[in-house]
């Protein structure tokens, strides 16, 4: 029983990380109507950036954060303005195919630079310390990850509803054509949105890099998690990503509790069940 509660608690906490994987994907889809198939690979790219600055250059973690997050933001802006803005239109195919191409380029580029070896960051003692509450033990690192996730999502919420940029982002989400007539430079706004998305990816990437080991090919499974979280939590809902993340994390924890080999599968299956039972509810009737 204690073991079950422990794994459920772990599932809730990893849900925070999953929500971070998903928040950027959701933001980008909401504004640009583009599902970025390279999303997972961009997260892994962030993890490798962190790995390179901390483990290879030997810089302290706080400095790595200050380097990686702006670089991710810049990468997002450049990618959007330089490439992805040229694919936006009525046809869903071009953005999908182009981001799929980016995914393949990133994976193989990372393989070329970092090889296929498993990597992991070492954050030191915090990774093994845990908080004992009665019979339940929760790792301090997992708690930290969850706290960062909640803070990030709160920040995103604040940005969206309390700032001028957020108002412009939401207006552009509603109706990009009219937003332009109001004077919004939508090309630039799309770039900013992708930059924000990739900064969130960067936060997820740094946390992920110490959570578990990763390789250049870890991207697609991050993408699938992010996607499932977005669909479960409801498209366009900021706090929904946290709910979706926790749902998926708990599903995986339960599956893994029954049989370690079922962990990932259980997450996918819960996703499919939710999709089958609440198709219109989750998609908000868009067809």
């Amino acid at each position: 029983m204690t073991e079950l509660i422990n794994s459920l608690a772990q599932g809730v906490l990893i849900g925070g990380l999953y929500a971070l994987f998903a928040a950027g994907l959701s933001l980008v889809f909401g504004i640009m109507r583009v599902v970025n198939l390279a999303h997972g690979d961009l997260i892994v790219t962030g993890s490798f950036m962190t790995f390179a600055t901390v483990s290879m250059l030997g810089l302290p973690l706080w400095l790595a954060v200050l380097i990686v997050l702006p670089m991710m933001g810049l990468l997002g802006y450049v990618l959007q303005r330089g490439l992805l803005n040229h694919t936006i239109g009525t046809d869903v195919l071009p953005p999908l195919l182009v981001t799929f191409g980016i995914s393949i380029i990133l994976q193989n580029g990372l393989l070329q630079i970092f090889t296929a070896d498993n990597r992991k960051l070492d954050f030191g003692a915090i990774e093994v310390m845990s908080l004992q509450m009665g019979p339940v033990a929760m790792g301090w690192y997992a708690i930290l990850v969850f706290a960062v996730a909640v803070a990030t999502i709160y920040g995103l919420q604040f940005l969206s509803y309390r700032t001028r940029l957020g108002r412009v982002l939401r207006a552009t989400t509603d109706d990009p054509e009219v937003a332009r007539v109001m004077g919004v430079r939508t090309d630039h706004v799309f770039g900013i949105a992708m930059a924000i998305a990739l900064v969130i990816c960067g936060i997820a990437a740094i946390l992920f890099a110490a959570w578990t080991s990763f390789t250049p090919l870890s991207g697609p499974s991050r993408l699938l998690i992010a996607f499932e979280v977005v669909v479960i939590g409801g498209i366009g809902s900021i706090w929904g990503t946290l709910a979706g993340g926790i749902t998926l994390g708990v599903a995986q924890a339960l599956g893994g509790y029954l049989d370690p080999a079922w962990q990932t599968l259980a997450g996918h299956i819960v996703f499919v069940i939710i999709l089958a039972l609440r198709p219109a509810g989750i998609l908000g009737g868009r067809r």
Binding site: R33, V34, V92, L223, L224, F227, L265, H268, I269, L275
Partner: peptide
């Protein structure tokens, strides 16, 4: 087929993973 355009794409990938 409950999913739209791009969401169909990733959904189909999830199915293949399953």
């Amino acid at each position: 087929f409950r999913l739209n355009g791009a969401y169909f794409a990733i959904g189909s990938w999830v199915i293949a993973e399953i």
